[in-house]
């Protein structure tokens, strides 16, 4: 269990936050990757704030472009420490101050662009709950779900990559990660050709691995290892509708 923390030293956000504006190829690449991963919560946020599809897409695209081009990070309040809060603050700032300027320049004119699939984003947005949720809450909620999905996706990929048997095992045991699996272990075991104990061990291991992956994902977006737990609690609060 010691390797979990060993990864931390190269988390992307800490890299980005540490590098000064416009410097460092690594920092830029890291930021790109983060943006590519977490653009959808921003999009949903912007949509909920009242932008239509096109405007929201443009804004997010423009925001990222500015971020990557101008080293916008430098202007952000880095002390806040978290990529999530940084993005939100920066986007707000951008929307109110910079957007008009940026819009004046032709979109994408010579600038680097992230290739973001807004069509998919919009499809997903249509499925968001409509009433009673503020844009901020929606953003946080989406953020949390994105983190989870990314961790689960990595976990699934690991299993798929291993063998078809492991992939099948993943599908069967996936519900137990959250305690949703209602079927007794014995029955699952019968289906998978495993003993009850083996199922238990497999779930335990899968959970451990998932946990590592999730923490790794979160680690990429916070400034220090120590903040991971706090971030988890905060996001749990967002999901459960309490601060």
């Amino acid at each position: 269990m010691t390797e979990g923390a060993r990864r931390f030293h190269t988390t992307r956000w800490s890299l980005v936050a540490a590098a000064s504006a416009g410097e460092g190829e690594q920092a830029r690449a890291a930021l790109e990757e983060l943006c590519a991963a977490y653009w959808y919560p921003l999009y949903a946020f912007q949509r909920r704030r009242g932008s239509d599809i096109e405007e929201a897409s443009d804004l997010v695209q423009g925001f990222f472009a500015a971020l990557l081009e101008k080293g916008y990070v430098a202007q952000a309040d880095k002390d806040r420490g978290r990529f999530r809060t940084f993005l939100m603050t920066a986007l707000r700032h951008f929307a109110s101050k910079e957007w008009a300027k940026a819009k004046a320049l032709k979109r994408g004119g010579g600038k680097a662009q992230l290739s973001l699939d807004f069509e998919d984003g919009e499809r997903r947005y249509q499925l968001e709950p409509s009433g009673g949720v503020t844009a901020e809450a929606l953003f946080e909620r989406r953020w949390a779900l994105t983190l989870i999905e990314r961790a689960l996706e990595r976990l699934a990929a690991e299993h798929r990559g291993a063998s078809s048997e492991k992939a099948e095992r993943f599908e069967a045991l996936r519900p137990y990660l959250s305690g949703r699996g209602a079927e007794p272990y014995r029955d699952v075991g019968l289906r998978l050709g495993m003993t009850e104990t083996a199922v238990k061990v497999a779930v335990h291991r899968m959970k451990g691995r998932y946990r590592d992956l999730l923490r790794d994902e979160i680690a990429q977006t916070v400034g220090a290892e120590a903040e991971i737990d706090d971030e988890i609690r905060r996001l749990m609060g967002a999901l459960r509708g309490s601060p």
Binding site: L177, Y210, L214, I232
Partner: peptide, 15 residues
Amino acid sequence: TAPAGDEEAARLLEV
């Protein structure tokens, strides 16, 4: 891989 609902997502975070 998507969680089925917010509560499950919260639990997945809790892990």
